[in-house]
Design a protein around this nucleic acid. Structure first.
Lengths: 210, 210
DNA sequence: CGTTTTTTCCTAATAACATTAGGATTTATG
DNA sequence: CATAAATCCTAATGTTATTAGGAAAAAACG
């Protein structure tokens, strides 16, 4: 067991080193302008050695967001656990996710700016996880309809499009602008607008406490 | 004049041929997997000849959306001319833009999937035009506030984020899914939800005629 | 029309880069 | 210590963007 562990750890350690180098360089210079030599040098290896750990440059690109997104997915349920009401869940979802993006901007940049352009994206494990990630929103909107917080005629898929679209737009701009301001600027107001779209018409905006 | 024209036309014609080849190949195979040989062959030229018309592959990538977006920008004012009311303008904006995307899916694909990843995007003419394109929305929201259609406490920039984000999200998914359904599916409902976020709270949803 | 200049294009380098071959070195195993 | 496995390296190989240098075609001009 001990030998197995140490072996595994050393190999895993190098792998992580390569991933971190790639992550940094990709998000600094972009995917195209980063060379395999750049990555391997920064990881303290020769180019050829890198190919023992990854199939190639593209494999490396796809591995990075894979790790991040699957980790996010694991955390999501925990974060929403115990929160009552659809609107409160929605709020937590938004704040939590933006926080995670803020904490892992390199991963986020790769997902948002480099991944979609990849021809294989739709066949990726990442894509499957992103779908799960978003489908959780559908459940929240359905809950909101059931318990009367949200309009009965609301189409959950439309609502999700609006919510996800807004989120992604805020994040993408922040990344493009080199994170030069806070992701949370004005977020409250934007969230309240969103909620106004989903909420039943009668409830006025004064019931913050609910 | 005549000679000048014919010269210009011939040169311009080849240029257009190259652009169309590149447009098709980029959006079919992606930017990376398309080679300069592919493009020049399809245009009926040698690789080297292509460099008489463009500085290189990247220049070609940036030129395509440049043309499309500046053309859109020219059309925008015409389309909104004479439409009364902010919400009606917003509706026209959405329907018109999605129609243009539907009619020029190759251009749209390049703008939405390949452009943002480019490190130089923010310094591009395209980016400047996209900004104008979106800032028009700010004017519409301010008009809506002034004439009482929209809530007085609405932050136009937040509203724009929601509107643009939703639009971009719908378009991006449609492109990723290879345009296998209609862009206009369910658009009415989604638009009505958006408007509910912006509209003054008292007006109920029955005033479609307004 | 014939000559000169300019435009347009091509074949054949060059250079950068991803990937692979084949073997050396180090580390684990008995 | 000897052997097997792993990790790594130097040196190819192949692909692709870009450039050099000049040919062919078109235009300009006497």
């Amino acid at each position: 067991m001990a030998r197995n562990n140490s072996k595994h750890n050393s190999k895993e350690h190098t792998r992580v080193r390569i991933i971190n180098s790639a992550k940094q360089l990709f998000s600094e210079q972009g995917y195209q302008k980063t060379t395999v030599v750049d990555i391997s040098r920064q990881a303290g290896l020769s180019e050829a050695a890198l190919y023992e750990y990854f199939q190639g440059k593209e494999d490396l690109l796809l591995t990075i967001p894979d790790l991040w997104v699957s980790e996010l997915l694991k955390d999501l349920d925990e974060q929403l656990f115990g929160i009552q009401g659809a609107i409160n869940k929605l709020r937590k979802y938004l704040w939590w996710y933006l926080r995670r993006v803020e904490q892992a901007p390199l991963d986020a940049k790769i997902v948002y700016l480099f991944l979609k352009t990849n021809a294989n994206f739709l066949n990726t494990e990442v894509y499957a996880n992103v779908k799960k990630f978003y489908s959780c929103l559908i459940d929240i909107f359905e809950e909101g309809q059931t318990n009367g917080e949200m309009r009965p005629d609301l189409d959950p898929r439309s609502a999700r499009d609006i919510f996800v679209g807004t989120m992604d737009h805020i994040i993408t701009r922040w990344l493009l602008k080199d994170r030069s301001y806070s992701l949370f600027d004005n977020l409250d107001h934007t969230f309240n607008l969103l909620v106004a779209a989903f909420r039943t018409e009668k409830s006025n905006s004064a019931d913050y406490m609910n």
